[in-house]
Amino acid sequence: MSKIILITGASRGFGRLWANALLKRGDKVAATARNIEDLNDLIETFGDAVLPIQLDVNDREACFAAVNKVVANFGRIDVLINNAGFGLFGAIEETTEKQARAQIETNFFGLLWVTQAVIPIMRAQKSGHIIQVSSFLGLVTLPVLGIYNASKYAVNGLSETLASEVKDFGIKVSLIEPNGFSTDWSGASAMQTEPTEIYAPIKQAFFESATPDSWGNPESTTSAVLQLIDSANPPLHFLLGKVAYPGVKQVYSQRLAEFEAWKEVSAGAHGH
């Protein structure tokens, strides 16, 4: 049976790739984009199997309207892929208020609004799968991406909590946590702070640490994501790419060792 899938940020990158793969196999896709004309080629290829929706996820009311439009057109929503978002590169000290708010508004609040809109639909259906496109930087951090890291940590905290709240309604929640991939995320879609000389060595070291092999091939993610969507028991945390797992494992091992080293002091702070 084909699935009805709502994908935000479907104009490029992961959203476009996954929408195309889902449509090719016979699913129906409600695809959102800030500029609806970016979806024209999908419509030309797949016709009525695509429902194009112009949406700025920062507009909460528009998010609810978009979800209602999907239900009116297709009758249900089986899967939500919350993919809309962008990267903000620069040191924390360099980041303006406007840049920080824009990053959190889209990456966190935009995802929250679409999630809130779809929960009542899935709850009434007694089924559904909410897939949040986060990052392995919601589990560990890298320099020069501080506000982006923070936005993804927020997404992870929100989604872990959500999973515990909606599981009894038949709703599953998964976090897709990719390492770096060669998508538009770090290119034209990204935002940059105004650079200052003091952070130049840190930035240089960060960018030089990445090798061509560090960046995954976006097209190679399709099979893994289709398996996630089709799984009867999908994971809450789903790492994408070969860099993510060893990176997360190393950091978590270090954290556990630090907790262990300070556990007596920590316990003593309890007071009884």
Rank of each mutant, 00 (worst) to 15 (best):
M1Q: 05
S2D: 14
I4Q: 12
L6I: 04
I7A: 03
G9V: 00
S11K: 02
G13I: 04
F14C: 05
R16V: 02
N20L: 09
L23Q: 07
R25A: 01
R25V: 11
G26S: 07
D27L: 09
V29Q: 02
T32W: 11
R34V: 03
N35Y: 01
D38F: 01
D41Y: 06
I43G: 00
F46R: 02
D48Y: 02
V50E: 06
Q54C: 06
D56W: 09
V57H: 03
R60S: 15
E61P: 01
A62R: 09
A62K: 11
A62V: 06
N68D: 15
K69E: 14
V71M: 05
A72Q: 15
N73V: 00
G75T: 09
N82V: 02
N82A: 15
A84V: 08
L88F: 08
A91F: 13
I92G: 05
I92H: 12
I92L: 15
E93G: 10
E93R: 06
Q103K: 08
Q103A: 11
I104A: 07
E105M: 10
E105H: 13
T106K: 08
F108E: 12
L112D: 03
W113C: 04
T115C: 09
T115G: 11
T115F: 06
Q116Y: 05
A117V: 03
V118Y: 08
P120A: 10
P120I: 01
P120S: 09
I121H: 06
M122W: 14
R123K: 15
R123G: 02
S127Q: 04
I131E: 13
Q132V: 06
L137S: 07
T141A: 15
A154F: 13
G157E: 09
G157K: 03
E160Y: 07
T161P: 00
E165I: 05
D168S: 12
K172C: 01
S174W: 08
S174H: 12
S174L: 05
N179A: 15
G180L: 11
F181Q: 09
D184H: 08
W185T: 01
G187L: 11
A190M: 12
Q192N: 14
P195G: 11
T196P: 00
Y199I: 00
I202C: 06
F206Y: 15
A210E: 11
T211A: 08
W215K: 07
P218V: 07
S220N: 10
S223K: 14
A224L: 10
V225T: 12
L226E: 12
L236K: 05
L239R: 02
Y245L: 10
P246C: 06
G247M: 08
V251R: 15
Y252N: 02
S253V: 01
S253W: 04
Q254G: 08
A257K: 09
A257Q: 13
E258I: 00
E258P: 00
W262M: 04
E264P: 00
V265F: 04
A269Y: 13
H272W: 11
